[in-house]
Design a protein around this nucleic acid. Structure first.
Lengths: 213, 213, 213, 213
DNA sequence: TATGAATGAGATTTCATTCAT
DNA sequence: TATGAATGAAATCTCATTCAT
């Protein structure tokens, strides 16, 4: 299921590969933020990473590999930071906490998020599949958490609605990343979290929490 | 504020310009959907439009002009189709109707939407500004409608929340366009509209509509 | 059998294609002679052909296409010039004449021959097949002519020997092209033709011509 | 005249140099056969030789050195194996024997021969001269042998014809190496030797051997 | 002596744009 | 107005060679 799309390197030292790829990713994100994947040249990527074009190509095979490396690293970071927060028992309080963590994470990494969502369509087919998979895993984390709330009797919604709510959350996160220019003048991240969470929970749990029949 | 980003043409006949540009837009959307703005070549755009590369350049100045033409035409279409629906008095029923219209519009034009949102970042600065403006006008249409509901006493929310709700709506539309692969297997467009509208209205208006104190 | 390996061009005007390709071939042969296929750059080829690198690529798709064009044109020239001379009735005199024509042809085009034989191994698989075919057709021309001499009773050798003799002739031609540096100081092309022809015919026809039993 | 084109090495131990260079030659021939000199990379050569790219460069200075090493080693092998056979008194029988040895040698090493003849043009000027020299020495071996036959009265041909005959022999050898695909289906190496030798001798010596006047 | 990571010049190819017809 | 051949800057990628370890 999680068969990694491998990026071949001609360098043998695994530690070095890891280190250099971190440099590549860091430089590339900075560049992609600024000019997007297509407008960034491999020479610029190499320079941003701190070495020569030749060295860059010791650690990747094609420019698209760089994009994949970036996307992969972002998802990994997101997943590792989220999985703790999302690994809660099924309480509304836990959900609230998880949502906050998620939005704050996106706030921290919003440049990376924008890059990933805007450029991942340029990945080669198999890498795109792998990344899409990761995206679905992220949705699944939320789905699972909400589902636990339902099972625990803290919410009463249909399976379909669980699905939608999970997608909704992910999309809200994208909104914070993508629409900063429009939103951030009016809201702090805390305001935003508060508002979105309330709105979501009020929508989802109203009959249980606020309006028991 | 609304100074149109002008696309220069060496052809004088305005009708011809209009006609040719429609051809360009139609061909370009098809192409951009398939391979994105950067991977589509001007030759291909010309071919898709039904004429030669030389002729293409009689009606545009740069490749980015094509992108601008596409984005502009989409916003115009959206605005013209929405302005009727959004030009309602401030009733919740009118809002419900407007939301339905908007989502159905996106469903019809989801290819164009995806193209626009994914590629508009590649516009040159002034064109990007113009398009961003258009986007904000669209948000403003919703804001205005919700605001009327508040003024009419059908909703009771703060100004800030009106803002947010309008953005929220636009983003939900993007979700339907972008996450088709994930959502459409579970929901029809009607289900989706119903669900989203309810959720939105329930969140926003619950105290007034469903839970009068 | 003679399914041409097609070289795609983005230019439509067939006459222009022909003309430009002649320029390409002429420039390329000069260059390949001097530095071989691999050491000649596409930029140099374009320059030698008299136009820009962009224009070169309007008439070919890959560098290997240039090599193919060169090989193809040489074989065509050879075949057209030979087929007359080789289309003789089966007399020893006719054979003598044909051999002379062939060697003189090679003397004229020895640069081209050297290029073709040295570089054709770098052709892509299908082009190589096509060229190998042409080579075999050339051998077949000689085979046919010798065969006619045998049928006409002017020579008495086995089928196998006909085969070998044809190859032998072709190889002798290569020798004149490749070993100029060693041979030309001692022999004129006329001397060479005389010597080779005698030697060949004496070997092949001795029992009939010089030593009737 | 025979000033060896020296290949510099940074390693001091002469035995080691010899051993490593044998490895290089063996690997390189295999590789060059497969993809030619230009398409083979130094990394691949090192790998085929069984060590690292760094080590390769301890024993050569440039990639062309490898080609030189290969050509040189082939000529040395040829010369050492031929010089016995060619070191005969001037009898037709001795010539016959020498020719057989030569063709059989080529049959054994035809891959190496093909590599050498196809790629030697890529040698740097001085190395090319050296190799051309070797080639001429090889021709001279035959020339000498034939000459001895003439002196011994076993053949009666002009000096010029001796020259040509020697070249002819070398070229016949090349024919066996290069045109395997066309010839080997009809002839075994023994058939070929027999045929070529007869033909050569019959042409050259007919008046003396078979048709004494 | 052996290794292999680093380098960067240079190769091929693409493609937006121009301009003569 | 319409055409499409010509252009060349610029992009991606390769690979011979070096050098610190």
């Amino acid at each position: 299921m999680d068969l990694k799309h491998e990026v071949k390197s001609s360098v043998k030292d695994e530690n070095l590969i890891e280190k250099r790829r971190e440099q590549i990713i860091e430089g590339a994100v900075k560049l992609f933020k600024e000019k997007g994947f297509h407008r960034a040249t491999t020479r610029e990527i190499a320079k941003a990473a701190g070495f020569s074009i030749g060295t860059l190509y010791e650690y990747i095979r094609t420019k698209e590999d760089v994009l994949y490396l970036v996307c992969d690293s972002i998802y990994n970071e997101v997943q590792s930071r989220l999985s703790n927060a999302l690994d809660q028992e099924g309480t509304v309080e836990g959900l609230r906490l998880a949502i906050g963590t998620y939005f704050r994470l996106i706030d921290d990494m919003s440049d990376e998020f924008v890059v990933m969502y805007q450029e991942s369509k340029s990945l080669p087919k198999d890498a795109l599949e792998y990344v899409t998979n990761k995206e679905m895993e992220m949705v699944a984390l939320f789905k699972n958490l909400i589902h636990k709330c339902v099972t625990a009797g803290e919410m009463r919604i249909t399976e379909d609605a669980v699905d939608m709510a999970a997608h909704h959350l992910v999309v809200q996160g994208q909104m914070w990343a993508f629409r900063r220019w429009a939103i951030r003048s009016s809201y702090s991240i805390d305001d935003f979290i508060c508002l979105q969470t309330d709105q979501l929970l009020n929508g989802l749990v109203k009959r249980i929490v606020s309006v028991p029949v």
